[in-house]
Design a protein around this nucleic acid. Sequence first.
DNA 1: GTGAAAATAGCACGATCGTTCGTTTATGTG
DNA 2: CACATAAACGAACGATCGTGCTATTTTCAC
Lengths: 201, 201
Amino acid sequence: MKGERTRQSILERAVDLASLEGLEGLTIGRLADDLGLSKSGLFAHFGSKEDLQIAAIETAAERFIDEIYTPALREPRGYPRLLAICRSWLSYLRRGVFPGGCFFAAASFEFDGRPGPVRDTVRRLMDDWIGALEKAIRMAVDEGHLDPAVDPAQLAFELNSLFFGANFSYYLRNDASAIDRAERAVDQKLESLRVRRRKRA
Amino acid sequence: MKGERTRQSILERAVDLASLEGLEGLTIGRLADDLGLSKSGLFAHFGSKEDLQIAAIETAAERFIDEIYTPALREPRGYPRLLAICRSWLSYLRRGVFPGGCFFAAASFEFDGRPGPVRDTVRRLMDDWIGALEKAIRMAVDEGHLDPAVDPAQLAFELNSLFFGANFSYYLRNDASAIDRAERAVDQKLESLRVRRRKRA
DNA sequence: GTGAAAATAGCACGATCGTTCGTTTATGTG
DNA sequence: CACATAAACGAACGATCGTGCTATTTTCAC
C-alpha cells in the first residue's frame, strides 16, 4: 500500500527533525510543509501528535539497531563483540546517523521530567539498550574475557555515560576531539578489566 | 525596587519549571498563572521570551555555583578539592536542587541543535564549567596529588560524563542506585590516578 | 477500464502562543 | 500627604498549534 510508504517517509523525516529540535519541537504543520504534504493528510496517518511522537521513537530505534547494534553482532560474543558495540556507538556519532546527535540521548533528557506514554516509550527502549549492553558484558565475563568480578550494570552505566558525554561535548561544545576522548576512555576501561590468556575453567 | 524582587522570583520559578519541561517548554502564560501574575505584567520584565530564557539560564548558573561549586572551594586545592567538587555534584543531584534534574544537562541536550543566543549562553556556561573542572584537575596535578601524566581535558570529560550519566539513569530510568554507581566510578577513577606520599619535587 | 476503497487535500474550529499598547494600581521619595 | 514614577493589569493582535470534518484525488483489484 502507498499509505505505508508515505507513513514511513514521514517518520524518517520526523526522526531527523526531532533529533535537531526535540520531539516536542516537532510540529505537524512544519513537518507537512517540509514533505510537501497537507497538514491533514499527514495527520491522518497518526491519530494524534503523541502517536506520531511514539511512532517516530520506534522508527529511530529501528535505525539505531540497524546502524549500531546489528553490525556489532557479527563479532564473536565476548570481548570482541563488546568492544565492537562501543566502537559502533562512537562511529554512529561520527557518521551523523541522526543529524542532531543521538536521538535517544536527546529524547531521554527531554522527557525525563514529562510523564506519559512518550516518556514510557523512551524509557522502555533505553532500558532495552542498557540491557543489551549488560548482556554483552555478561557474555564477555562468561567467555572468560573479562574479570569475573565485573558488575555488568556498573560497567554498562560507565560505558553509556561516556557515549552520552561524547554526544554532549561533540554537539554542544563542538569539541572535535570528544569522540576520540570517549574512545580512549572506553578502551582503557575495557582493557583494565580484561583477562588475558587462560580460558575459563 | 519591587520590580527586581518580582523579576527574581519569576526567574527562580522559571528555572524550576524549565528543568522539568525544558526551556522551550516554558510558556509565558503558564508561568504567569503559576505565579499569580498577569501575562503582560510578567512579560514586561523581559523584552522577549528569548531574553527570559537567557535570564533563566543565568539564574540557574548562580544556583549551581552556590550549591555545587562554592562549597567545594572550602576544601584545600588539589585532590581534596577535586574530590569535593565531584561529591558536591552528585549530592546536588541527590538533593534535587533542580526538580527535573540537572538544569544544564537538560539545556545542553535541548539546545545543541538549535543555533542562536540561547544555545550560545548554554555553551558558554558549560565551557566555564568544564574549564573549572579542568582547573581543579590541573591544581591537583600541580600539587603532586595526581599523576603528572594526567590530561586535564580528558579527565574532565570522563568525570562530567559520569555526572550526566547519573542524571540520565536517575531521572529517566529511575535507577535509585545510579548516583552510587557514579560515585563508585568517580572514586575509582581518581584513586587510580592518585599519587600517594611524596610531595612534588 | 470501472468501481470500491484508500489516501490525500481543503477548510475551519478553539486554544494558546509571543507580543503590543493603553490604563490602572502600587511604590517610594520629597 | 502628594506626586512622579515604576509596576502590574486587561484586552486584543496575528500566528500557529493540534485536531475534526467533508470533499477530492489516487490507488489497486477485478
